[in-house]
């Protein structure tokens, strides 16, 4: 790296590279990529984590208590936002929350030290967008299935004066249609921005120590490294918060569909 200082590409970490195992599906070639690998790793890690909570003891051990903390967190959120009917949707929201959380956290692992390239699955809008679209589709299906065409009254908030309806309804409609984009974009942007920032700062650290005026470069490196420690901690927080926000907004949107007004 020393020879090519200044050429550290902060976007390189988002590159998808094929790892083999290609087959054809409906005219598209499906390859097993590093992105797919990290999804599978997240799924396996999540499976192991959940398996540790399956001992079903009356008095939980540490691991079981941790798993039950997560499940209780999501089910109480569903209960608070939707009510008893929310239990039906808990498996989906829990899967969503845990998958996003594990992908976020696994992407933060300092595996670069071991020469591996961690890949943050949730830093791709294609992934977060699809997850957001699944949530949006659930809202639409549940809404129209439960309320029929009456679901359109979602665009007229309760107590709107009659003359205001022609103005309010389009605004509500647009805000409703923007939901999947904002939902997917928020997670994608938060993850991408954090990882780019960390990569840029780590580039400063490397380039600083390779600088020709070493004393100045060292100061830059040390300062950047200190900043990186703080930002890494912040990114761990963001990883949890973004997963929570995604699950929370999904539960709120499902609530709109379940309890119309």
């Amino acid at each position: 790296m020393a020879a090519e200082s200044g050429k550290i590409d902060p976007m390189h970490q988002f590159e998808v590279t094929p790892l083999g195992g290609g087959f054809n599906l409906g005219g598209h070639e499906i390859l097993f990529t590093n992105s797919a690998l990290w999804m599978v790793v997240a799924a396996i890690a999540l499976g192991i984590f959940m398996w540790g909570g399956m001992r079903r003891q009356l008095i939980p051990g540490r691991w079981q208590a941790a798993v039950e903390g997560f499940t209780g967190f999501i089910s109480s959120m569903m209960m608070a936002n939707i009510g008893t009917e929310g239990r039906k949707y808990t498996p989906y929201v829990f899967s969503l929350f845990m998958f996003i959380l594990f992908c976020n956290l696994l992407g933060m692992l300092p595996l670069g030290v071991l020469g591996l390239h961690p890949f943050t699955v949730t830093s791709h809008i294609a992934i977060t967008g699809v997850l957001a679209l699944i949530s949006f589709a659930i809202v639409l299906v549940v809404g129209f299935w439960r309320h029929g065409l009456h679901f359109f009254s979602l665009f007229v908030p309760h107590g709107t004066p009659l003359p205001m309806i022609p103005i309010i309804a389009p605004i509500e409609f647009v805000s409703f249609m923007v939901r999947p984009f904002s939902l997917g974009l928020r997670l994608f942007v938060a993850m991408t921005a954090g990882h780019v920032l960390l990569k840029v700062l780590s580039g400063f650290v490397i380039n600083g120590f390779n600088a020709e005026t070493l004393w100045l470069g060292s100061i830059v490196s040390v300062l950047s490294f200190t900043l990186m420690i703080g930002i890494s901690a912040l990114e761990l927080l963001v990883a949890g918060i973004q997963a929570y926000v995604f699950a929370l907004l999904t539960s709120l949107y499902i609530n709109d569909a379940v309890n119309l007004h």
Partner: peptide, 19 residues
């Protein structure tokens, strides 16, 4: 296509097995 395929496979697996 690979991204979407693997996402759907993995997420469906998580939903069925874990959720």
């Amino acid at each position: 296509a690979s991204q979407l395929f693997w996402l759907l496979v993995v997420f469906a697996g998580i939903y069925v097995v874990i959720g």
